[in-house]
Design a binder for these strands. Structure first.
Lengths: 118, 118
DNA sequence: TGTCATTTATCGAAAATGATATATATCAGT
DNA sequence: ACTGATATATATCATTTTCGATAAATGACA
């Protein structure tokens, strides 16, 4: 690993880590989960995640700022949609890794995990 | 979504978010990347990631505390290994989602990235 | 105007981070 | 056993970021 390559690697790691950071809080992770099924208004997200509205709005602003979601206004409602395919892929992978048979919410404990890959 | 289910979901989200948080810093992400290929001593990790030793040690302690890695001592060296299969799966997914053409630091050995979801 | 939906501002407490200093553990040579 | 070197861990400090809570502001519509 040459120093130049190391620097590139660190750059990339910073980018990816930044994205992980956005999903590394329960509230934002729930929001992303919610949006996996399609667009949702802020109040729908609020109802379905239990995140308090001003905090939710701040989290949504973060996701917006990083380009992970886009918005569409319809009258008084604002609808959010996942915008970054990498996030969708990542969320899919998360579901696969942490809730192998189905939706999270019904706990996967007892699942014998496959032997560490490789 | 009943309130009871919502609470379960939030618990699960907290658990997963906690794991993401551990990977949400460039240094720790690089460490995890490094360990994908097998066990490494602290000084190897230090050399290959450029993370300064005391900070690296603190990060490794965090990963240890959360059960993501295990250690083995050989004389003066301590070797770290990825211990949680979910982390391995997640790292694989990350590589697939963020380095489709096989880049960061190369890696990506035969890993046929599991198709997005389900 | 008033109400609903959403955003922005602010505050205080807690956690994360880089840097630096120090401590512990293991080994080699004497 | 004592010394010094190497490998790793822990402690501390200063700065920044995060988060929940609360209050206030904006925008759309009736």
């Amino acid at each position: 690993m040459t120093p130049e390559n190391l620097e590139l690697l660190r750059d990339k790691a910073g980018e990816v880590a930044g994205m992980l950071k956005l999903l590394s809080h329960p509230n934002r992770l729930l929001v992303a989960c919610e949006l996996m099924d399609g667009e949702r208004s802020v109040s729908q997200i609020e109802d379905n995640t239990g995140v308090r509205q001003p905090n939710l709005s701040r989290d949504l602003a973060r996701l917006r700022a990083e380009g992970l979601v886009t918005t569409r206004r319809d009258a008084r409602h604002i609808y959010y949609t996942l915008a970054d395919p990498r996030i969708s892929a990542l969320m899919g992978a998360l579901c696969a890794a942490f809730a192998p048979d189905g939706k999270p919410g019904q706990d996967q404990r007892g699942t014998t995990p496959a032997e560490s890959v490789r």
